[in-house]
Nucleic acid binder design. Structure first.
Length: 886
RNA sequence: GCGGCUGUAGCUCAGAGGGAGAGCACCACCUUGACACGGUGGGGGCCACAGGUUCGAUUCCUGUCAGCCGCACCA
């Protein structure tokens, strides 16, 4: 127990007083670690690793909270539960940040420092900032097992990365080759296809005349990138294009440079687009590259890795891409080659990190062959071994995997897993190895050097579900907790991460790394915009926690959306959650303050429960069932909302009010009984709420006289443990209806709450009379009544305000306050309402098809409703007749 | 072009084949011995539109319109 136990509870819940100590209490007692009981089923999750030097943002907070709710729920259900946390080295992002800091603070570049010293600086940076994010994860209340924390560049995971690389290489699934890749000139590295964002931008289509070498004439090509013309090696036309049939095989003189290039035919060309003549630049366009391969064309490069023109561009050498384009267009115009310019919008690839226009660049890179790896994953989706929540994401996932191209995994960075390939200066052979290569295994030369590049960060992330558990070693954790039970992450990294974990998992463990993928959406601002640094509309979760508490943030995030959908985040919603938590707190205070000090768990005699007790216990059992079902289906939002409604409306607004009758009365036995039920309901609610709002529930639970060392380890409630009494539920609804009717009348007539009044209830039958007799004290308390008359045959006062409830008529003879005009209006409104209901029901029941085909219980329910409405309508009409004659 | 999501109260969103819901906002009243981060009462919606399936559709299907997203792109 924490030191705060059994201090009086403050009037308003103050999260700051509780959260830090509570987290230490949990973590210190090892509650986040699996119990290790092998007789129990295992439940495991790995945390999507945040960037080690990053800061927690709301997206993380949401993702982590969902996981924590699931983990706490499973832990309470008795699973041997483990949640493995960790961080990611985030190659480009981290390197860029350290480079920026070095530049700003010391005015040096990474090249000034050199590779090893620079990498050391990044490690130092990681040591400095690496704890920040994990402490932020703690502040959220994440119950992950920190004793198993991993980092993508720690020793074990690096071993896993090498192992995977070597094995894939040996199987021919990793290869090195000259390909057109996406090059970010600013980040100065290759990118994979999914790190490129295609956005529509306005541009120009330039029509340029390429003259024939011999004789007059030529062709006009259309291009958006005239600056690449120095690397043109051909012009292609469609083989069936009659317009240019005669040109095929002729030679053209490249404008400005005069180099000769052939005209050739290739079906890739779309005769409809532009002029139907396509310049072929294999080094600067992936499609052109393929055309070039088909026709055995040279590959010339006129733009280098720095985004500037090469010596091939002659006088344009050294210019950047934009400047070169302007100058080339101008020169073409002056020399009469530019036929016309058309304004177009086209999709241009941008670096997803820095938004620089990506340059398709021919270069030597490492690739993962995707088709053989994707196939078994597709099979796993098809046969249900890998499932998605919501299901619709399976389709997106499958479509992507079916069309995926080979994955470029080499990055021209220094921070990351260096590619385990060594080149021999002697014989030129490549050696890929698990251990550092000292001498070339092919020729024995000591002149070997390792590949300069590192691997895509996602390459190591892809191994996360098993590398964190010790793979490639055959560890106990791996055997027990792999495959993971579920993966929770945002749909935005379905391809980046989920797909890659899936194929790596299948390839290296023979099993999908998790059976279920639960996907959530994105956090947006109050206007529905994505949160971004450039918009400045981001919300810092730590500030939210400081202001409202981690529980309020968690409850907001978990109840704010339905599965797979985005959610908007704004202050009022957090306030609503904070208010709810305060409501729970005060309900607990109420129970606590009404409990005698230092007593054990009170007990009750099921035979003497009040109708209110039986009602709340029945409803509680229903709530346990519903909440459990929703959580099992990973529909956390709905589970949270059910708890919110039940806690506030039924438990606080009604049940607690009902209990005041006995608690403030003289009957000690009844008091004890009420306390027992109150404690039971509160205890159960705290257990159900704990996964959502762990801090406040644990804190409250400490004060309750229930056995157990901590709520986090308490068993999940069992719905069958409670009294079930559907009749009590039905009856309490009638009582509520009557109480609302009284309140309604009082409000309509502006009767001050302090003024007590009399009430008559004319019941339709003895059963209803008995019910109202039994709940008379409730009526008196809630209606502030000074006299109650209940009976079947009683006469209702004429000078009164009335209401019709299920099975009875209610009258409040308010003497001088009675306004028969208002009464008439009320009754007429009620009559119209009931008439509409009666007609609706009767129309249904008159339909022979409905009676014949609808399920019997539905027909029966309609009949019952019809009877109820007709009875009420009759009473209302009778009342209106009397009013007319008075 | 292919695929997907969304359209329900003023706002933000749940919901579900059979009587339209919540929070916030709004109006009126209330210092009732858990809570004003509260209580009570109230107003407010052809559930985007048009067809279809069904005894019955706001819910399922098709189409239209509107907003959004992903994938693929012809230079």
């Amino acid at each position: 127990m924490t030191e705060t136990t059994h201090e009086p509870l403050s009037k308003v819940y103050n999260p700051a007083d509780v959260e830090l100590n509570m987290y230490r209490f949990w973590e210190g007692h090892g509650y986040f670690q699996p119990v290790g009981d092998v007789s129990r089923s295992a439940f495991s999750i790995v945390m999507p690793p945040p960037n080690v030097t990053g800061q927690l943002h709301l997206g993380h907070a949401w993702d982590l909270t969902l996981q924590d709710v699931i983990v706490r729920f499973r832990r309470m259900q008795g699973y041997d539960t483990v949640w493995v946390p960790g961080t990611d080295h985030a190659g480009i992002a981290t390197q860029a940040r350290v480079e920026k800091a070095l530049q700003e603070e010391e005015g040096v570049s990474r090249h000034d420092l050199g590779r090893d010293p620079f990498v050391q600086r990044v490690w130092a940076w990681k040591e400095q900032y690496g704890n920040r994010i994990t402490n932020q994860v703690r502040r959220l209340g994440a119950s992950c097992d920190w004793s198993r924390e991993r980092f993508t560049m720690d020793e074990g995971l690096s071993t896993a990365v090498r192992e995977v690389f070597v094995r894939l290489y040996e199987r021919g699934l990793i290869y090195r080759g000259q390909r057109i890749i996406n090059w970010c000139p600013r980040c100065a590295t290759a990118l994979s296809d999914i790190e490129v964002e295609h956005t529509d931008v306005p541009g120009h289509l330039y029509y340029v005349r390429y003259p024939l070498v011999d004789g007059d004439g030529g062709v006009t090509i259309a291009t958006t990138r005239p600056e690449t013309m120095f690397a043109d090696v051909a012009v292609a036309v469609h083989p069936d294009d009659d317009r240019y049939a005669a040109m095929v095989g002729k030679r053209l003189a490249l404008p400005l440079v005069g180099r000769e290039i052939p005209v050739l035919a290739d079906a890739y060309v779309d005769p409809e687009y532009g002029t139907g003549c396509l310049k072929i630049t294999p080094a600067h366009d992936p499609n052109d590259f393929e055309v070039g391969q088909r026709h055995g064309l040279d590959v010339l490069q006129c733009i280098g890795a720095d985004g500037r023109l090469t010596e091939l561009a002659g006088p344009y050498q050294g210019l950047d891409r934009e400047e070169a384009r302007r100058r080339v267009v101008e020169e073409l115009r002056q020399q009469g080659y530019l036929v016309r310019v058309e304004e177009i919008t086209h999709a241009v690839g941008h670096c997803s990190r820095c938004d620089t226009v990506v340059e398709p660049l021919l270069s030597m890179q490492w690739f993962v062959r995707m088709q053989p790896l994707a196939a078994p994953v597709l099979a796993a989706v098809a046969d249900g071994r890998l499932q998605f929540v919501p299901e619709r994401f399976a389709k997106v996932f499958v479509h992507w995997l079916e069309n995926v191209r080979d994955w470029c995994i080499s990055r021209q960075l220094w921070w990351g897993h260096r590619i385990p390939a060594w080149y021999c200066d002697g014989c030129g052979q490549i050696s890929v190895a698990r251990e550092t290569v000292q001498a070339c295994p092919h020729c024995g030369s000591q002149q070997v050097h390792q590949d300069e590049d590192v691997l895509d960060t996602w390459f190591s992330s892809a191994l996360w579900p098993f590398s964190t558990l010790g793979w490639p070693a055959d560890t106990e954790d791996l055997r027990r907790y792999y495959p993971n039970s579920v993966l929770v992450t945002g749909y935005d990294i379905l391809f980046f991460w989920v797909a890659r974990m899936a194929f790596m998992g299948v390839e290296f463990t023979g099993e999908v790394p998790f059976h279920k993928v639960v996907l959530h959406g994105l956090i947006r601002d109050a206007q529905g915009r994505k949160m971004s640094k450039s918009l400045g509309n981001g919300v810092d979760p730590l500030e939210v926690i400081d202001q409202y508490g981690a529980d309020a943030l968690r409850f907001t995030l978990t109840t704010g959306s339905s599965p797979g959908n985005d959610q908007r985040f704004y202050d009022e919603r957090v306030q609503g959650s904070r208010n709810f938590i305060n409501k729970v707190w005060n309900a607990a205070r109420f129970v606590y303050l009404n409990l005698p000090p230092a007593e054990g768990m009170p007990e009750w005699d099921p035979a003497s429960l009040t109708i209110a007790d039986r009602w709340i216990l029945t409803r509680l059992a229903e709530v346990v069932t519903e909440v459990t079902d929703h959580l099992e289906r990973y529909d956390l939002g709905e589970a949270g909302r059910i708890l919110y409604d039940f806690t506030w409306d039924e438990f606080c607004d009604w049940y607690i009010e009902f209990t005041k009758l006995s608690l403030y009365g003289q009957d000690e036995a009844a008091k004890a009984q009420t306390r027992a039920v109150l404690v039971t309901v509160l205890d159960t609610l705290l257990r159900l709420l704990h996964p959502f709002i762990p801090f406040v529930t644990e804190r409250i639970w400490e004060t309750l006289p229930v056995s157990g060392e901590a709520l986090i380890r308490a068993p999940w409630p069992d719905a069958t443990a409670f009294v079930r009494d559907e009749e009590a539920v039905r009856q309490i609804r009638v009582v509520m209806e009557a109480i609302r009717a009284v309140r309604n009348i009082r409000a309509d007539l502006n009767v001050s709450p302090g003024k007590s009044v009399a009430m008559s209830i004319r019941c339709q039958d003895a059963g209803t009379e008995a019910l109202f007799q039994s709940v008379e004290p409730y009526l008196v308390r809630f209606g502030n009544l000074n006299r109650v008359e209940i009976g079947v045959g009683i006469e209702l006062p004429g000078q009164a305000m009335t209401a019709v409830v299920n099975g009875a008529e209610i009258a409040l003879p308010l003497a001088d306050l009675v306004d028969l005009a208002i009464e008439r209006e009320r009754m007429q409104r009620e009559r119209e309402r009931l008439l509409a209901e009666v007609q609706r029901v009767e129309r249904k029941l008159a339909n022979a098809q409905f009676v014949a085909k609808a399920p019997p219980h539905v027909v029966e329910a309609e009949r019952a409703k019809g009877a109820e409405y007709r009875a009420k309508l009759a009473a209302v009409e009778e009342r209106l007749r009397r009013l007319a004659s008075s």
